[in-house]
Structure formats: structure tokens, C-alpha cells
Design a protein around this nucleic acid. Structure first.
Lengths: 174, 174
DNA sequence: CATAACAAGTTCCATTTTGGAACCTGTGTA
DNA sequence: TACACAGGTTCCAAAATGGAACTTGTTATG
């Protein structure tokens, strides 16, 4: 079976990975976060071919994650910047980086550390409940049916397989 | 240039995406989080070919993210479970799912919602500072040099390009 | 005892995606 | 006029992927 168009997927993770679930896209986005905006800089930093980079950037533009930005009036040259949708991937970057820091660092420790400028402290970014501020784990966070899924079920617009899958996901205990 | 071996990358995001930065791996991991453990169930749910799935699961086992678990003594059958390293990808899943919920949902809204069992409320998982609990954004979180990078620089074990890149990343203001 | 069913793969080959190198285009500078 | 630079595009070979058929080990069924 072939890779599906994101809009046909029910699962948000599947939809999201259809945008950045490949070898390069997340790495490109990471560079945009650290202000490496220019085509040639991205290309050289990553060692990606021009062809591939053009491809990926165009996909990101199509998806509204990135936009072209005129950085040189005289030469009419454009670089690539994150839209609000793209900037909102910040948490994804941090969380992936953190996992890598923890589990993939060599004996010398992680390459970077995080500082929260407002409180001035070295911070471990953590996923917490917006309501009570407690740390979230697979054991204390549950999924429940959202309106998008409810609609699909009401309309019969969902496979038996997906139905079972979500029933399973919602039933998770402990 | 070809895809690099994770251990040769300085950046934790690059190391991490060398493990799950492809079409399928994150989707496989997501199923493991919702307790779809069996080879055949994963295969059918995702529509991935057996060949590919075998490949991905073996990679995940090699990387210590997943392990084989005997679920049927009689038939000597194994399924796949998350190790601690794999379970630690929970925040990654949630954050990606959340981004998809926000930006890729259709007009009917997100497929799922989140409930924090301890406080009983519908929760928006958020990335916060472990120290003061404030929400983290690209504007209030800074990167600083970690021991892994310091060692590499001291040893001269880093390219000029990476050096510039990190200098740039650390200099980010506002 | 033969046969079928099931889970978990493996093998083979055609298709698709990617990498690498060379070429193209528009603009300004020497 | 020639050259440099940024940002591509074109072309082809190499690598990754998909699809279908086959394999293996085990138990259930007639």
C-alpha cells in the first residue's frame, strides 16, 4: 500500500508525519528555528542535494508551514521563514531534541542545554497538564473521543479497523 | 550525500530522526503506545508491507527502543513492546499529535482530546519550564552549550560549519 | 494421518524515491 | 566582456519501497 494523503488519515500523528515524516524535513525545520534561512546555507549545512531541498521546501510552503521571504531587494532574493503554523512546531523540536539528548548522547553528555530566560534557570522542558501543571506520562494521560472522530463515526466515514483502534486507545487504563 | 549514521551527528534532533525520521516508524511507535503490539495487527492497521515492517521493527530493536515479548507460550509467538527508551518517546507522540490536532484537523475538529486522570480535567498538554512552570516558546527558551559540544570543540572534533551553526543557535535573542 | 489455519516472516522483482553531477537563469561586479 | 553568486532544473544511476507469492513452525479439524 502506498503512502496516504494526509487529509485521508484520521490520526493526527499520521497527518503530521505525512508532512515532516521523512529523512530531511525535520532537519530543515530545525535550521529555520536557529535562523539558518537561506537555501544555500541549509543545503550546505545538511548536505542535502539542491533538488531534494527544493522539493521539501515547496512541500512545506504548500502546507503553510514555511513562506518565502524577500531578504535582498536589490537581487530579488528570497529565503525561507516559518509561518505561525511552522513556529508552532517548536515544542516538537524541543521534545525530540530532549529525547535525543537523554538517550543518544555519547559519554560526554548532551550537546546543548536549555535556559528559560524569564526565570533565568537551566530548565528541563517538560510536558505538563495545562490545568494543574503536573507532569504528563502515559500512565496519567488518557485519550477521549474528540468532535472530529465523533462526526466520522456518526457519518459512517470510518473503517472498522480504525474504530477498533480508537476503542482500544480510549480504553487504556493504569 | 547519503544519510548519515546517527552517532556521527552532533545534533540530537538529527540523531533522533535517524531512528524514527521516516514514513513509518513513528506510526508504528504510536500503535505500540495504544497497545497494538502484534506484527499482523500493526501491519494491517497501517497498511505497511510485511517486509518493511520487519525492517523497521528490527531497527527499533537494534536501537533499544522496542523489544520482543513472548505473548503466547504455546505457539512461541512474540510481539513488540516499548522499552523505557521507547516509552520515553511519549512526549514526542503527544506533541506531534497536538500539532496535528490544531493545524491539520478538518472543520469537525480534532479526532481526540486529552484527559489528565489525576486532576480529572480535559487538558491541553503544554511544554513548560521544570523550574518555574511557565510555558516555553521560541522567545523565552534559549540554548546554551552542553558538555557534549564543549568536549567536541576542545578536541577539535567538529566542523567549522557546525561551529558556526551552534554559535548562531546560542546567539538567538528575543 | 492429511489438511487447513494462523502468525510471523523471507524472497523476488517492478516501481518510486533519492543522490550526484552538470547545466540554466537572472542579477550585479571587476 | 567575463565572471561570480544564489537559487534553482535536468538527467541518469543507485537505493529504498511496494506487492505478491512463498516458507516455517505450530496447533486445530475431519
Amino acid at each position: 500500500m502506498k503512502w496516504q494523503d494526509s487529509s485521508h488519515q484520521t490520526c493526527s500523528v499520521a497527518r503530521a508525519t505525512s508532512i515532516f515524516g521523512d529523512k530531511w524535513t525535520l532537519l530543515v525545520l530545525r535550521l529555520l528555528f536557529v535562523r539558518v534561512y537561506k537555501f544555500s546555507d541549509i543545503q550546505q549545512t545538511l548536505g542535502i542535494t539542491k533538488h531534494r531541498l527544493t522539493d521539501r521546501l515547496n512541500r512545506l510552503i504548500e502546507e503553510g508551514v514555511v513562506f518565502k521571504h524577500l531578504y535582498d531587494e536589490k537581487y530579488k532574493r528570497y529565503d525561507y521563514r516559518l509561518t505561525e503554523k511552522g513556529t508552532d512546531l517548536y515544542a516538537v523540536m524541543i521534545v525530540i531534541g530532549q529525547w535525543g539528548d537523554k538517550w543518544l548522547s555519547d559519554e560526554n553528555g548532551p550537546p546543548v542545554e536549555y535556559v528559560h530566560k524569564d526565570c533565568g534557570h537551566n530548565a528541563q522542558p517538560a510536558l505538563t497538564c495545562s490545568c494543574c501543571g503536573e507532569k504528563l506520562t502515559p500512565h496519567n494521560l488518557a485519550l477521549s473521543m474528540g468532535p472530529g472522530l465523533k462526526k466520522k463515526i456518526d457519518d459512517g466515514d470510518i473503517s472498522e479497523q480504525d474504530k477498533k483502534l480508537y476503542a482500544n486507545a480510549f480504553a487504556l487504563k493504569k
